[in-house]
Design a protein around this nucleic acid. Structure first.
Length: 555
RNA sequence: UGGUCCAUGGUGUAAUUGGCAACACGUCUGAUUUUGGUUCAGAAGAGUCUAGGUUCGACCCCUGGUGGACCAACCA
């Protein structure tokens, strides 16, 4: 049975080619089973997100299965807080792992038994050498290592010692269980790698059950194998580990999962390494892991990015084996594309200047009809109040405008969105010569939808009626770094922190925004996409800028 | 200097496995528009790191360079 390329005209990436080849050869009965194996020691970020999309996407595309498996083999650095956040973030990304949520720690008993099997077969031994000695005897890439003095201990003795390790009869650090492979291998990872080490730490899943914990290189292939993972996809730095991955599965004679490596995705204007992310949080450059400037999934979500946009992004940047730096601008394109379809249009003035419509009756309020989304008529309409005193954006007025300026300037006309055409008659300034107020007149017959004035204007401005305006705090975000590759420079990344990555402004917004809810997407007309922040209260509305609207005005 | 991997417009991926390089983002024009958004039409921009070789023909195969990434945690 042949499987068609389900992406139609799209060509296959190298992983899909491998998978389709496997299916063609009826390997594993054509079955496809992938997994995402996060270590619960931090929040997941955009890099993880694209990897999740890759693994889950492949399972979906080939009608296979996807597992979420926590790689929790190091209790000293892991925490239940992170398994909770990861579970939540992966789910938010739109991934359904059904009931297949696993933990490497689920396999501790089997991992132990398999280790005993290796010992019995003379493929593993307990080594009492110190960490320093082991490092010394490991050799260097250019010279072979030396065999440990414990390398030829008899299996029965090793079995006994290993059991003592398990029973906590040795202190942490006194010995390890090592695989007996080849101390002269050009691949350092094959020079008798450690299989188990002693850690007398509390584990978030298994408590105090274990005194020994398996290393990643051992636990990972076995976990993959036990779960029947057909294609174990990871990043390039694990390429050198593959011979070891294969060695364990072969020696144990268990299901031969296959590891496939791809080049990790880097993104410009941000950093994505856990260590540096942690620094940003700990050293106070941002306000926590879910700070909207963080490239964490939690941060992106709070910023107003949608999971659809992230998935689309992951899809568009593709996957390959060469070094790459994806353009974060493409992610912005993807959110705009999605938000344009779903965001409710509203009016908000971020940097207000007052406008008085001198020929409009005092005390009068008109409720004007406004569409919620021109891209989606089903989104319906709402009413916005119009009155004599309004606010418009300060940079929508210029006293001495350049030729192509379409906005308001003395004696010029513009349309107020959903409302009337107005003319600027008078500019009111304070003693410092700053413009503080504009006096305008409106054309009564130019009302939006029933305009008979015959006046044509090139500019349309957003506005908010002063009397009914709500105040709101708006948090304007910019990229966290001013350098395209802040993590790849000589200087410390913090020297490239953008001092203007967060700007908080007090604004006036239309009254309908009082009803805004968490998770709802808005477009502040002519400005950008925004969402309510979790800090918001009915008395103090807070909005986050997700991404600006494209702006082709070069003024 | 031991091993492994990688190299295609500014960026990210393609090129049906050898038939004179495509798509997306970005950039630049123009049209439409009651968002300088969206949409639509179009343009510029690489001859595939380099030098040879095989071939009628090479981004693709071979050899040698060059450049870059990764590998010597009781981390993952």
């Amino acid at each position: 049975m042949t499987h068609e390329n389900t992406s139609g005209t799209h060509s296959l990436n190298f992983i899909e080619q491998i998978i389709e080849e496997d299916i063609k050869n009826d390997k594993h009965g054509g079955r496809v089973h992938t997994r995402f194996p996060p270590e619960p020691n931090g929040y997941i970020h955009l890099g993880h997100a694209t990897s999740i999309c890759l693994n889950y996407g492949l399972a979906v595309k080939y009608k296979g299965l996807f597992n979420l498996r926590f790689d929790d083999t190091n209790p000293e650095s892991e925490d239940i807080e992170f398994v909770d956040s990861i579970r939540q973030d992966v789910h938010w990304l739109g991934v359904d792992w059904e009931n297949r949520e696993f933990y490497a720690s689920d396999y501790f008993p089997q991992l132990y038994d398999f280790a005993c099997q290796l010992i019995r077969n003379g493929k593993a031994y307990v080594d009492f050498s110190s960490a320093e000695t082991i490092a010394e005897e490991k050799g260097t890439p250019t010279e072979a290592g030396k065999e440990s003095q414990y390398r030829n201990t008899k299996p029965e003795e090793n079995l006994r010692l290993f059991e003592q390790m398990k029973n906590g009869e040795f202190e942490q650090g006194t010995c390890t269980l090592r695989a007996k492979i080849d101390m002269a291998s050009p691949n350092m990872l094959l020079r008798d790698p450690i299989i188990y080490r002693i850690k007398k730490a509390h584990h978030h899943q298994t408590g105090a059950d274990w005194n020994i914990y398996p290393m990643y290189d051992y636990a990972h292939p076995v976990s993959d194998s036990l779960e029947g993972i057909t294609h174990s996809i990871c990043t390039m730095e694990f390429e050198a580990h593959r011979p070891l991955y294969d060695w364990y599965l072969r020696e144990l004679g268990i299901f031969p999962s296959r590891q496939i490596e791809f080049a990790r995705r880097n993104f410009n204007y941000t950093i994505v390494s856990k260590r540096n992310l942690k620094r940003l949080v700990n050293e106070g450059y941002v306000n926590g892991w879910d700070d909207p400037r963080m490239p964490t999934v939690a941060g992106l979500r709070r910023r107003g990015y949608t999971s659809q946009a992230i998935r689309e992004f992951a899809d568009r940047i593709g996957v390959a084996r060469r070094e790459n730096v994806a353009d974060i601008g493409l992610l912005e394109f993807c959110v705009r594309e999605h938000l344009n379809k779903i965001a409710t249009r509203v009016m908000a003035v971020l940097d207000p200047i007052k406008v008085v419509i001198t020929n409009y009756p005092e005390g009068k309020t008109e409720w004007l009809d406004a569409e919620n989304n021109p891209e989606n008529p089903e989104a319906g309409n709402r009413s916005v109040p119009f009155s004599r005193e309004l606010y418009i954006e300060r940079d929508d007025f210029m006293e001495n405008p350049p030729k192509k300026y379409f906005r308001l300037s003395p004696q010029k006309e513009v349309r107020l969105k959903h409302a009337y055409i107005i003319r600027c008659d008078e500019v009111v300034k304070n003693e410092a010569g700053e413009v503080v107020e504009l006096h305008c007149s409106y054309y009564e017959n130019s009302k939006s939808g029933s305009d008979t004035s015959g006046i044509s204007v090139k500019g349309t401005l957003h506005w908010v009626s002063a009397a009914t305006a709500r105040t709101a705090e708006v948090r304007l975000y910019d990229r966290l770094f001013t350098q395209p590759e802040p993590g790849a420079q000589e200087e410390d990344m913090t020297t490239f922190i953008n001092p203007n990555s967060l700007q908080i402004v007090q604004t006036f917004v239309e009254p309908s925004l009082q009803e805004a809810t968490l998770g709802q997407a808005f477009q502040f007309i002519r400005k950008g996409y925004f969402c309510l922040d979790k800090d918001s209260t009915p008395d103090n509305l807070v909005f986050n800028l997700t991404v600006n609207l494209k702006d082709s005005w070069k003024g």
